[in-house]
Design a protein around this nucleic acid. Structure first.
Lengths: 118, 118
DNA sequence: CCGTATCCCTTACGATACTG
DNA sequence: CAGTATCGTAAGGGATACGG
């Protein structure tokens, strides 16, 4: 997880993975960042409805993970009843944009013509 | 896997995942692309020795997956005995570079100071 | 509406041993 | 050297049901 890979002469160091990178690569992470970036702020069920196949369970887990590393922010509106919103942070936008390059490239190279991004 | 995510009005389409993207995100994929890019061509055991923690089994699987999608190339040198080399393709370099942005960003944002990239 | 808990299945991957 | 085969464990995530 936090391991480093060294060449015999200790010159090259490749970090093949980090906790954040692993989170970024998990299913639906990118989709969540995209919808939050597009819509500014969304409620739990709004996010779920916008992303096909995303279950409440996975959304719940993913939101907590994303909030913990500050890629998104959980905002509780003190109304009656209370409303919970999620927004994307500046760091989240940076990650989303970097991901977008990779996703576009992957779709470009992917032989599977069903796989595309709009 | 090849699913698309639609908003109710069918306007937004987010592709959260593709086979290629999943491969790119697998453990050691990035490390393999980096060493092949750095050294030009490498043999099976050379790659394994350069990447700490990478087992023969995983390397074998990953090389086949990467070759299949043409991010790397398997070259058999007709010598005696036969030598097998692996090289990175232009597409592989593009993916590696896109990944590098994300890895750098992840390391930058990662709170874990043990997690770094050199 | 906003989640949490439980069950279960699939896949990734490490360890180890073996082969041409 | 360049792999393959088998086994075991752990994590991801879908389905479903439940709670404040």
């Amino acid at each position: 997880m936090e391991e480093c890979c060294f060449r015999e002469d200790q010159e090259l160091c490749i970090f093949y993975s980090s906790r954040l990178l692993e989170l970024i690569m998990k299913k639906y992470t990118y989709a969540i960042l995209v919808v939050l970036d597009k819509y500014g702020k969304l409620r739990f069920n709004e996010i779920q409805r916008k992303i096909l196949g995303l279950t409440q369970r996975t959304l719940s887990i993913r939101l907590k993970e994303l909030e913990k590393v500050k890629l998104i922010k959980r905002v509780v509106e003190p109304s009656e009843p209370v409303k919970v919103y999620y927004t994307i942070t500046t760091e989240g936008k940076a990650v989303k944009n970097a991901m977008q390059i990779l996703v576009s490239l992957a779709n470009l190279l992917d032989n599977n013509k069903d796989a595309y991004l709009c």
